[in-house]
Nucleic acid binder design. Structure first.
Length: 470
DNA sequence: CGAATTTGACCAGCGC
DNA sequence: GCGCTGGTCAAATTCG
């Protein structure tokens, strides 16, 4: 993560936007030039306005810094825990550097639980989300079962697999999956609605189509894809056009990648992982937890908190579906969040995060530059271009922002650990565990399946990075 | 020729 | 038990 020390406040303020920036500086220049005498009434009014603006900005700055501090502390704690766990794992399993492709490895579950006894559940989730998130582990094992046991046809039977898999965890005293276990549903899903003319929005990952079906109530076929970026990656996605509006492409992701994501895939991945984490963190997360998170009473790593912090506009775009057979969160990137100001402030926010990260945070980021930040300049470019092209892109921008802001914590799950996951375990109420970092990708009409949008024009590129709002 | 896609068949879950 | 539906498999086909 390329973190820069926090700039002085005044500089920070000036970065809030091009117009404001120029205007402010011009006013200051005018003031300096004309001293006190020129048009006293006008100057008084201007000064008052500037004061008001200044106060507002200071307040906003304070709030943002608070959020940043919180994230920084969280990251530092997580990283220290990560080091501890890594050392322990190296001692116990020297050849187990990356716990990848263990999709069917039930013993690894047990190993992980042993490890979990010496670490916090939160860290465990970032290190081995599969295991720490028992529900997700079951889901993945279930998914893997269908992958590798085609002959045996070990089919899932309702939530029984999950229950069986989760049981050992509870026996070990881990109650984090309790909420998920109580849920009648199995696999968390993140559904992304985006406008795209392409048959499939590319997300930086490689997908192989393995099926297509006509779904009930929709004249458009539903295509099934699985991730082929790594052998045994359990991530699947379904792509289908919306019956009501065929310009809307609905992409539903399920599962966790067991490999690192390419930069182009991390943007939406972070967003959806946060969304899924919030989704799976249980009812408390979506209600009290989320509210508490926003009020600053949350556990640092609460998924709801992460999601809401990173996706402040989620309320207008994300919907939870409790009635669906699967716990599903839908990110609607087809609608414009309230007000054009949202676009402007979002754009500002996009520019800010790396700027306001304190140096301490940089020290706490020992990993390689995370992909989503490494590509940040391009993200900003494309986002800017997209904004110019279409105000609807603000939703996509929100997604991009979410990934940038949440990247400090989430990138670990998505980039430095085999499987993405983020959950607020360790919060004591057993809620935040079974997060599924549903790996998705930034929507991009280019890349794989029929990418008519590989034109390279700025707006198109923008959609590549974030979503498909054309 | 290998990889990717297509497409019909198969299976499990669920409701009646 | 039966039929419907969603999801997956795998042989056949197409593509590069």
């Amino acid at each position: 993560m390329e973190l820069r020390p926090p700039p002085p406040k005044h500089h920070h303020h000036r970065r809030r936007g091009g117009d404001g920036e120029d205007g402010e500086e011009e006013e200051e220049e005018v003031e300096a030039r004309h001293g006190g005498g020129w048009d006293f009434g006008w100057k008084e009014a201007t000064t008052a306005a500037v004061d008001v603006e200044l106060r507002r900005v200071v307040e906003e700055n304070r709030r943002l810094r608070g959020m940043l501090d919180e994230l920084t502390r969280s990251y530092s704690a997580l990283y220290h825990q990560y080091l501890q766990v890594t050392q322990q794992q190296n001692h116990r399993h020297p050849d187990h550097h990356l716990i990848m492709n263990n999709n069917n490895n039930r013993p690894s579950l047990a190993q992980t639980h042993r490890t979990a006894a010496t670490t916090t559940a939160t860290t465990q989730q970032f290190l081995e989300p599969r295991a720490s998130s028992t529900a997700q582990a079951a889901a993945d094992a279930d998914m893997a079962a269908s992958d590798d046991e085609a002959g045996n046809k070990m089919r899932r039977v309702g939530g029984q697999d999950e229950t069986a898999a989760a049981a050992p965890a509870r026996e070990n005293g881990e109650q984090q999956a309790a909420a998920a276990a109580e849920l009648p549903c199995r696999k968390p899903r993140v559904s992304v609605r985006a406008r795209s003319e392409a048959p499939m929005i590319s997300d930086g990952c490689q997908w192989r189509k393995y099926g297509q079906k006509m779904a009930k109530g929709n004249p458009c076929p539903r295509a099934y894809y699985r991730c082929t970026m790594a052998i045994g990656c359990p991530v699947r996605k379904q792509v289908q056009r919306c019956a009501e509006d065929k310009t809307v492409l609905i992409t539903t992701y399920e599962g966790n990648h067991n490999h690192q994501l390419p930069p182009a895939a991390t943007t939406m991945a972070n967003t959806t992982s946060a969304a899924a984490a919030m989704l799976l963190s249980g009812p408390a997360a979506s209600r009290d937890g989320a509210a508490a998170a926003l009020l600053g009473h949350h556990h640092h790593h609460h998924p709801a908190a992460m999601f809401h912090q990173s996706f402040p506009y989620a309320s207008t775009m994300a919907t939870l579906s409790a009635s669906a057979p699967f716990p599903t969160i839908t990110l609607d990137l087809t609608q414009t969040p309230a007000g054009g100001a949202g676009a402007a402030s979002l754009l500002h926010a996009l520019h800010r995060p790396p700027v306001i990260h304190p140096g301490a945070a940089a020290q706490a980021m020992p990993f390689a530059v995370p992909p989503q930040l490494a590509m940040q300049p391009s993200v900003m470019e494309t986002v800017t271009a997209a904004l110019a092209a279409d105000p609807n892109f603000t939703t996509a921008l929100a997604a991009a922002i979410s990934s940038v802001v949440a990247g400090g914590a989430h990138h670990q799950a998505l980039s430095t650990t085999p499987r993405g996951s983020a959950a607020g375990a360790g919060d004591g109420n057993g809620n935040g565990s079974s997060a599924a970092a549903v790996a998705t990708g930034a929507a991009s009409p280019a890349a794989t399946a029929g990418a008519p949008a590989a034109s390279g024009s700025p707006p198109r590129l923008a959609t590549q990075s974030c979503t498909t709002s054309n």
